Amino acid sequence: MQKSDWFTRFSSAIATYAGRPITFAMAVATVLIWAVAGPFAGFSDVWQLTINTGTTIITFLMVFIIQNTQNRDTAALHIKIDELIRASDKAHNSLLDLEELTEEELCEFREKYEALARRSRETGKAKVPLEVDGDT
């Protein structure tokens, strides 16, 4: 077991739990309880600091958990799409590592595909040739 496995399992569980309706309901209930406690606490600085500190800490930690799950989901999606490109006879293998290209190189590919979409709409054909790296 790798050292990062615990964090992967932990972040997946937290992200799954955080996305459930019951978790949202608990957050709303916490805010309502805090708001109702305001008059009893005299709307004091401590009363305000309690919710501010709690929400700040939770938000700070959730950024890392969400980023971890997003990174893993994105990596898995890239692998799946790469396999579809690799397995398709008509797909261009030059598209396999687009995420590694510079912004300018990505813009060039985007322009080619935008032109392809335009030609397809103009001709009414579902498939029109696309030249990538000199091949069609």
Rank of each mutant, 00 (worst) to 15 (best):
I66G: 10
L98T: 12
I65Q: 07
P129M: 12
Q48Y: 15
I65P: 01
D82I: 06
G54E: 10
A15T: 02
A126F: 08
L98M: 08
D135G: 03
A117Q: 09
M62N: 04
A115I: 03
T123L: 02
E131Q: 06
S94E: 08
I57E: 07
D135S: 12
L84E: 12
T53A: 14
M1W: 04
R9V: 03
F24M: 08
L106A: 05
T56Y: 14
A25V: 13
A18L: 05
E103R: 05
G42V: 01
P39H: 14
L61W: 10
A117N: 09
W6M: 04
L49R: 15
E103Y: 11
E105L: 05
S120K: 04
I33A: 15
A25D: 00
I65A: 11
K112H: 03
T55V: 11
F64W: 13
V31D: 11
T56V: 05
H78Y: 13
E99H: 09
M26K: 05
I57Q: 06
F43K: 12
N52P: 00
L77Q: 13
E104P: 03
T59H: 08
H92R: 07
I81K: 09
A126L: 13
N52I: 15
W6T: 03
T136A: 04
L84C: 08
A18Q: 04
R72T: 09
G38P: 14
K80R: 15
T123F: 01
A13C: 06
S120R: 00
R118M: 08
I79S: 12
F10E: 03
D97S: 09
S94H: 03
Y17L: 10
A13P: 00
A126Y: 02
W47A: 10
Q48F: 15
I22N: 07
K3S: 07
L95V: 13
F109T: 01
M26E: 00
A91H: 10
A75C: 03
I33P: 00
I81D: 00
K3P: 01
I79C: 05
N93V: 11
A29C: 03
C107H: 10
T74H: 09
S88C: 07
